[in-house]
Structure formats: C-alpha cells, structure tokens
Amino acid sequence: MSEETTSSEDDITAIETPVYLTYNFTAGEATTRFLHQVRKGKVMGQRCPGCGNVYAPARGSCAACGLPTSEEVELGNKATVQSFTIVWIPIPNNPIQPPYIVANLVPDGANISFIHLMSECDNDSVHIGQRVEAVWKPEEEWDYAMDNIRYFRPLDEPDVPIEMIGKVPLSGWEGKA
C-alpha cells in the first residue's frame, strides 16, 4: 500500500502518550488540623472515643473502630523505633543520599507508628526498641509539612521492651514501665 519501501524497523511500534491532569488537592479536615500544628512545631494525635488509642498523624477516624476522632492529644518529641529499613536507592524528588534509614516510629503518647527518616546514627546499630528524638528544621523554615522534622536521631535512653512498643506514654520512658 505504501509507495515508499519502508523496512519493518521503521514501522511505528510504540508511541509516547503524555497524560497529565491537574488537580486542586485539598487536605482533609484532620490532616489540615494536623499540619497547622506541625507548622507551629507541634505533633498532635487524635484519641479514638471507642478504643482510646491515639493516632498520629490523625486522619480523622480510628480505622479499627470506624469512628470519627476529634479529641486532640499533644505528642512528645521522643519516639521509639518499631521497625526500620536501610534504603539503598534514592527517593524521587528527595535530596537524601543512600544509604539512609527509614523507620516506623511511635511517638510517645501515640499508639501507632509513622514513617520518618533517622540520621546522626550508625546505620548498623539502629535497632527495634531504640529511643529517638525529633530534630526540627530552624523555625523560619517551618511549613505545613511533616518534614519540618528533618529526621530523628538516637537518644541515650534504655531500649523499650518489645511488648511496650506502641504503649509509651507522653511522660516518656526512663527504663521503667
């Protein structure tokens, strides 16, 4: 059918299709509230009216009970390592250089972990139950973002026993239950 002789390598076998859609993203009510506090240097959780557990960052509900949460609870600057991974590949759009630690951290006063970076530590000595504290950016750089906390660094405190992880109160952990 074609007048010119075209070799099969010249045939179209693939096309580049840009699919870019613009959205006006809205943080949910609970997330908005949480980020406004983070903007002021505070990490807040929400307590479930059913089971009493404290969620952080709160999403406005207790997923276990399916109940809305509204009671705000201030959380500590200290946290416990629930688990972690040493990541050897870069995160897109993030300047951090591998290898770095991504840890599941339970802040004191909360009953659930969130994910954050750990630094100022020897990667090989990071361990489950380890105590850490938040290192914040300078106040003038604070925004509505969890990375106002630059990372968490180890504390010189005794480890939290496994069964106590996720149950450390706001008053902290001094090696005594």
């Binding site: 179209i12 076998t13 693939a14 096309i15 580049e16 299709t17 840009p18 699919v19 870019y20 859609l21 613009t22 959205y23 006006n24 993203f25 809205t26 943080a27 009510e29 997330t31 908005t32 509230r33 980020l35 406004h36 509505y144």
Partner: peptide, 20 residues
C-alpha cells in the same frame, strides 16, 4: 476549623504505549 489547605498538583506520566 483551621483554614483549609489547598494546593494544585499535577498527576501525570508520559506513558510509552506499544501499539501492536
């Protein structure tokens, strides 16, 4: 209720479609 946080963002990729 604190001020709503809104931000525009672009969800997108340039897909490579094999045509068959």
């Amino acid at each position: 209720m604190s001020d709503l946080l809104r931000q525009q963002f672009v969800l997108g990729y340039t897909y490579t479609r094999s045509t068959g």
